[in-house]
Nucleic acid binder design. Structure first.
Lengths: 146, 146
DNA sequence: ATTTAACTTGGAGCTAACTCTAATTTTTTG
DNA sequence: CAAAAAATTAGAGTTAGCTCCAAGTTAAAT
């Protein structure tokens, strides 16, 4: 029912150093210690780590995650602040997915171009190829309009 | 035909500081200066900035972008290295999109939960609601299996 | 022509998120 | 029980990517 810091490190891919750092930053407010001073992680702590990972990987800074946790500890008076936070984060994630898909198109164009270039042995030849120019024109460019 | 650093800052959303920093880091190898020492950005430089943005926003560190540019400057002998780089980056972006979609599900569950909690005035009540528990069980959890 | 705005440089400073050190203690293993 | 592995702390150090400063130069606007 309890995990050592090393077991949690293995499970999460974080280092023990990072886990201690997260606790110091207030991200693991329920983490307990044994009588001899060793950290004992519960499944609930793992749940918090899962949420932290989700928010961190979608670009939320640790201090904002900390803010959320502080609101959580404050209780039901902060429910709507927390709801707003998740709604904002949802919008950010959706926007990022859209951006990533656009970036992916650009990278796929580069792959097509370089595959042609490797075949021809020359980037200039690949760029001059009408098929490549057609592909490039099909790209949804970042809006650089004057 | 040429843009000042300030114009490019406005266009790209980067600061003039950042643009100088990028040049110092070798990311703008073709950027010219006027006879009096002012930077003059061409459309080609803007193109490079567009690629830098694409790679940076998809998580590539500047030093790897620099590596790519160095390969570009080396000429056609590095074509396949560059192709591999773009292929790897494509895989990373696809993986990130998958992760984001999983994270999005989790955030959407939190939104549903907190909407219920705000309505009830209590997070505990929302958590106890069977509809919420069903939703939670439907989530594709990060694999925490022992 | 003057003022104001934009640009130049080298180098220092900053923030986020770790990452490591060293000395000590606890736990596990043979 | 002895040795090795894993844990503890406070605090220092690192890295990436900016961000700013000061003193001076150039360009634009009135």
């Amino acid at each position: 029912m309890g995990y050592s810091i090393g077991q949690v490190a293995k499970k999460t891919g974080l280092t023990a150093h990072t886990l201690r750092y997260y606790q110091k930053e207030g991200l693991l407010p329920f983490l307990q210690k044994s009588s001899s001073g060793l950290r004992v992680f519960s499944d609930n702590d793992l749940g918090w780590l899962g949420l932290i990972e989700c928010l961190k990987e979608t670009g939320m800074p640790l201090k904002d995650i900390r803010q959320y946790i502080d609101w959580y500890l404050e209780g039901d008076s902060t429910l709507s602040l927390r709801l707003d936070m998740f709604k904002n984060q949802k919008n950010r994630v959706e926007e990022q997915i859209r951006q990533f898909q656009k970036h992916l198109e650009k990278i796929e164009y580069k792959i097509a171009l370089y595959e042609e270039a490797v075949k021809e042995g020359s980037l200039d030849k690949a760029v001059a190829n009408p098929r490549m120019q057609a592909l490039k024109n099909g790209l949804s460019q970042t809006d650089n309009a004057k």
